[in-house]
Design a protein around this nucleic acid. Structure first.
Lengths: 218, 218, 218, 218
DNA sequence: GATGAATGAGTATTCATTCAT
DNA sequence: CATGAATGAATACTCATTCAT
């Protein structure tokens, strides 16, 4: 077998990561054995170790791929004109559409990031990127007059992150949680914070009104 | 040998749970060995197995104790007259005062709850209790005119939970997170949602103003 | 099972070392698996690891025991009045009586001592002890007029060691080697080097004469 | 693909053996992996297996080459007129000049010879050759009156071998051993055993004097 | 002939759990 | 009740060897 083409190698890596992701999500990093992953991937232990130097490297690989996907998606979002709609879309995606196994994986990665230097590095770098993206998004939108927030962009970003984290955690851990039904209220809160001027409101985030109304009569 | 008095037994159990909690928080459930816990507790393996039938039982014991403490604290909260202040106090407690190791433990428990029936039972029952407590709290406060929320109590409770979850997750996983600096804004959001009538505002949740102000100029 | 008495513990350790010694001698350190030793000792893997922290520790334990035995035997020798007889006895013991497996073990230890710090430490410390013992032996004997060597004690010790090493190596590695038949000639050489005065010669190492005779007419 | 010329094949074999020798000497036969050797030789695993059927064959190849070199060197020696000088030269070469890694390799080979039939065959055949060479050397020298040993040639050969073995072992295993400083005394012993007639002594084996002198004053 | 990815049995070590004392 | 030695299956990882390209 001569040297595999880089694309084949990458495909092999991806295939193993896919299998590992499923196993890790199902049982957690530390209750998943290398053999489990090999079986799932239909690959021998030796072959796996051609692509990943250790179980740690596999975990880091999973974390990296997952986090990079998040970063990519956020980058796409940053280009959308309607900020509130984009955020609603993001929430919808992560809290409703994404399959349960990905969410558990995400908790697993976050937890691992506190105890594993390599994963921690990856995790925090993406976390910083997400935060910075939000800050820039808000700064630009404010500069262009699309929003008039009462809070500075960094604080706004913090709160948006916390709301996202809360949705994500609840969604991961509470099987009865109906994300769809809270998204309107959450969106309304965010809209309120962003304080989108009336003339800019084209389609109105559903549920935005309540917040504004009670804000008005406070 | 005469049977140990129930109180001695309970003390022993508590002592072992304390040791387990520290170990579990430090290394996670599945990277902590029974021997680690025995060493920490200064107890032999045989003795540990007198009080806990298995490692699973120990994990469930930790989960139960942790969740019950949360439930207890919430029950105390329910008796406080000033709702917004009570919530701010709760947030302060969990997001600022509580030591890091407890927070990681909590993530660990939540994650375990998705894969371990016993822990899941405990976890969800407390989760339901917390939710119901909030609902009742809000219902009572609304009935008594202390708050005038635009949203129904259940939705309100959902959002408060999500905010709490978000703070807790971020606090567990992000070493740079400064909970104290976001609490005012969070409190303002909640106050906005609760819509505390002007005459009821005794001390004003710090940061409540911003939300109201920008709500006003929406 | 309460704490085993120290003597029982020591017996257990010895039992495992015995099994390990046989296995190591038979197949070498690195072709012997822990399971081989467990089987030979009739002990589970877990039990073995109660007494030895690692395979390395087991190897070091073997080396230590073997070297200490050598040191002990040499100490006994040092007390014997007839030096030449004592050396002949030592040679007889190591080159003839000792079972083959012990000799291979010894080569294994020597080789390991060049690549394993712990074993190296043990090995060299005993080596130094052996050398120093010989030096002192010769110094005392010379001071008391029992020998009149032409070489200084240290050089004498060096050569005796080399002769011993040569016998031991050959005995370990050459299945046809008849140690018994060369001992007389070796003894004669050593006697010649020690130059035992005529009146002191009680039993005359066989073959001593030739060396002296040709020494005399050189 | 056309068959490689025999000389190219031999060169490849030699190249691989060179790499293997370095690796084996550094880490021992059983802690050296085929991959280590491939890396050192800059050759793929598949290519290595074209030239050597197995790791065993590689070890045997190393043993064979090493032993044959020894036999060759001894054959050269056999042609030298001055026996004592030739022996001193041989000792000098193996105990002083030869690099440490070769000596460890030699111990490794000797040890392996006791457990591996193929290596054992090679090892013992060279050992016999060395012994027989010495015997013939001594017989011829005695017949020609160049030496007048008190011992029969075979015993003489045995002792010379033992002295050589002792030097080699010590040199391999004792980092502080100063071979050069003992060679005179060893040479003196051998000269004494050979009993070179006075008129034959042309240049005197270095260090021969000491033995003679103390022989004289016995 | 050469490559190097793949195999899969084998390795040292750990660990939840038991049970003789 | 308490002890801690003992169990033995399970784990991550290695490595001699093969073989499709």
């Amino acid at each position: 077998m001569p040297k595999l083409s880089p694309s084949t190698q990458a495909a092999r890596r991806t295939h193993i990561l896919d299998a590992a992701e499923i196993c890790f999500a199902r049982s957690g990093f530390h209750r998943t054995s290398i053999q489990d992953i090999c079986k799932k991937a239909g690959v021998s232990a030796g072959a796996l170790y051609v692509y990943f130097a250790s179980k740690e490297a596999l975990i880091a690989g999973i974390a990296e791929r997952d986090r990079n996907k998040l970063a990519d998606e956020l980058a796409v979002l940053a280009g959308m004109p309607d900020l509130a709609a984009a955020l609603a879309r993001l929430g919808e995606h992560y809290a409703v559409e994404e399959p349960q196994h990905k969410r558990l994986l995400c908790v697993e990665i976050g937890l691992e990031s506190t105890r594993n230097a390599a994963v921690g590095e990856i995790y925090r770098s993406v976390d910083r990127f997400v935060f910075e993206s939000f800050v820039q998004l808000f700064e630009r939108a404010a500069a262009e007059g699309r929003i008039r927030p009462a809070l500075p962009p960094a604080e706004l970003a913090r709160i948006v992150c916390i709301l996202g984290d809360g949705m994500f955690w609840r969604r991961a851990v509470d099987p009865d949680f109906d994300a769809r039904s809270v998204i309107p209220a959450i969106t309304a809160i965010v809209s309120g914070l962003l304080n989108v001027p009336a003339e800019a409101e084209t389609r109105g985030a559903p549920g935005a009104k309540p917040v504004e109304s009670h804000g008005a009569n406070a």
